[in-house]
Every structure is written in structure tokens, then in C-alpha cells.
Design a protein around this nucleic acid. Structure first.
Lengths: 187, 187
DNA sequence: AGCCGTTGTGTACGATCGTACGCATGACCG
DNA sequence: CGGTCATGCGTACGATCGTACACAACGGCT
């Protein structure tokens, strides 16, 4: 019956990972089960244990892909900028366009951080993500500033996403301007 | 005989909430169950449904208490400062002493944020927390700066906690100095 | 063409979950 | 001092979970 196409289906594994991200976005890591993910990916339950050693492996691969996706967009956004001012503007765009809009991405990011807070394995993923972000920034700013700016982006995005009142671009731009301006040395 | 004191035992409810925080810190919201929490609090399973309508209520009260605890410490730290420079130093201390050290608090914070990212009910808790933090800052900085500084604190704490390499106080101090120094106006 | 081994699937089991509900227990009042 | 009723507990049930394992389905080799 033209049905199964069982051997050599590399797409199956990918579909499971995508489905896992969907399920996690909707129900959280807490609510993600082999059964739900299998149903969402339209694969039999047995496929889960066949393709993955356990839920941990699914989560690790899912979040690795997720982090890579976001990081690539981050890099693309920063690569467009050529001048210092454009770089600053790009950061503001990044916070307001990319990192704030989607509830799905906010949720997935937080789920990942929660895992990373508890288990070092997931921290590798966040660490790679952070490094990739800083590498995208270092073309425009000095290394020390990159760290501060990266942290500021993180905080502003999170607060903008969780806060009820709207955050204005002007305020973000001001914050970015400040953090990228060396303070007068004093002692 | 002063023993069981079944009626009017307000301590029981509190113990359950404390136990819930312990369990969540260890096993995450995902791994927290009525049974585990009851066992940890040394109360019968039936007490869970008796004192709370469901897990949601337990989580809400637990995280409300947690957020209040952290916020109070935040306020205490900031209240010690009298001058502008002391306030800046207090912020640096806050990041390095209070917010980075404990794995338990990192985990609980992230678990809360994850819930807040998905459900508005929990966002009320984070919102109140953020407001309380900003109120503690506003004695020393202007409102706009408070928002930026609050976001910076969030980002720096998170990155310091998740990053493998050590973050130095000097870098934090520099970031705080920058964010609390108005940028030269330009247009 | 027909066997064979790899690849993938269906199912059944034991554990654990939240919740409902009947009953013990002790406080309070007459 | 004893009856009554709100308070709190033990237990049992149905649902859902991850996983093991027997077996179906096919490509390749002779």
C-alpha cells in the first residue's frame, strides 16, 4: 500500500525534532512526552526510542537547533551593519524586531535557560549560543564592550517580553548608546 | 495535648510551600508532583488537595514567596547606599554576591521566568518583582536609567551564572558606570 | 526468485501521576 | 460529659508516562 517508506528516511528524525520544539513551545518541557511528540510528528511511538536514546537526547538536539537558528539571525542582522552607528541601530532592531515579537521564541529560550541552569550539558548549548552572539558583535565593538552589550541585550529583551507596558525604541537606543560609550576613567 | 493540633494549623500550609520550592529547585517544575512535595513537607498526600486547589496554586504561592524574598534582599542592599557612587557599588555587589552565588536561586528564577513566559498569571509575579526592584533603584537613579540598569543587572547576572568563565567585578563596575552615565545627546 | 539481516513498528507492562471520596478525629457547645 | 460537625487524612481509581521486546517489512545478495 505505498505506505510506509521505512528504510532510509532521514527526514523522520528531523521531523521529530521539529515536532519536539512545537510541543515544548506549547506545553513546556514539563508537558513534553514521547507520545505527544510522536503524534505531532506523525510517527509511531516506537520511533522515539528507536531514533533517540531518551528524552534528553531529543531535548538536546532540539535546543541545539533552536539556538543555532536564533544565532544565525543574530549574525545576519549584525552583518548588515557597516558603520559604528549602524551597528548600534542594528542592536536596537534586534531587540525590538527579533527577540521580542514571538511568544514561541521567548518560551523556548526560557525553557532552554531553565535546563541550562540545572544541567551542565545544556549549558554547553547556551554557551555556544552566547559565544556566537559575541562573535557577531566583536566586528563592531571591542571585546569588553561586547560582553556588556550582550548582557544588556539579554536583559532588555527579557524585560521587554515579560513586561506589560510597552518598551520604546528610544529608551533601548539610549541604553545601547550608553553601554557602548566608555565611561570616563576615575579612581 | 498540644500535639497534632489539626484544626488551625497555619504552619502546615507554609511547610508545603517551602517544600515545594525545595522540590522545584531539585527536580524542576517538571519533576514536581503532589507526592514528592507532600513527602518533603512530611504531610499526607491528601493535604495537598485539601490546602490547594491544584498544583497551579502551589506554584503561584511558592514563587510569590520566592520573588518576595529576593526582592527584599535587593532592597536591603540598595538601602545601605547613600551616595551615588555607593549606589553603583551596591549594584555591583548585588550582581556578584547575591544573584550569582546560589545555584538554587538561579534555578528557581529560571523556572519562574519559564512559567511567566507562558502564562500571564505568573507574569504578575515577575512584574511585581521587577517593579519592586526598580523602586529600590529609583532612590538613586532617574526612572529611565532604572529601567536600563534593571535590565543590565538581569543580563549580567544571567550571563555570569551560565557562563563557564569567571566574570570580573571590574567589568561589571564598568558596565554599571556606563549605563548610569547619560550619553551625549546627538541627532 | 528467494532467503537473510537490517530497519522500523506495535503493544503490553510497571511505575507514577492527580484527584475524588468515604471515614477518622478532635473541637466546641449545650 | 457526650453529641455533632467541620477539618483533615488514607486509599483506590483511571489516565498517562517511558521503555522493553517480539515481530513485521523491506533491500541486497546469491
Amino acid at each position: 500500500m505505498a505506505v510506509t517508506q521505512r528504510r532510509f528516511d532521514p527526514e523522520r528524525r528531523d521531523r521529530i525534532i521539529s515536532a519536539a520544539l512545537d510541543v515544548i513551545a506549547e506545553a513546556g518541557v514539563a508537558g513534553a512526552s514521547h507520545r505527544k511528540i510522536a503524534a505531532r510528528a506523525d510517527v509511531p511511538l516506537g520511533s522515539m526510542t528507536y531514533h533517540f536514546t531518551g528524552m534528553d537526547e531529543v531535548l538536546r538536539e532540539a535546543f541545539t537547533r533552536f539556538a543555532a537558528t536564533i544565532a544565525v539571525r543574530f549574525e545576519a542582522r549584525m552583518a548588515q551593519a557597516t558603520t559604528f552607528d549602524e551597528a548600534r541601530a542594528a542592536v536596537v532592531d534586534l531587540i525590538h524586531e527579533d527577540l521580542t515579537g514571538s511568544a514561541r521564541e521567548l518560551v523556548l529560550t526560557q525553557e532552554l535557560y531553565t535546563l541550562a541552569a540545572r544541567e551542565p550539558v545544556y549549558r554547553k548549548i547556551t554557551h555556544a549560543w552566547m559565544k556566537q552572539s559575541r562573535d557577531a558583535l566583536v566586528r563592531h565593538f571591542d571585546p569588553a564592550t561586547c560582553r556588556m552589550l550582550d548582557a544588556l541585550i539579554e536583559g532588555l529583551s527579557l524585560h521587554a517580553a515579560l513586561d506589560t507596558e510597552e518598551h520604546h525604541r528610544a529608551a533601548t537606543a539610549e541604553a545601547v548608546a550608553r553601554i557602548t560609550t566608555p565611561a570616563a576613567t576615575h579612581h
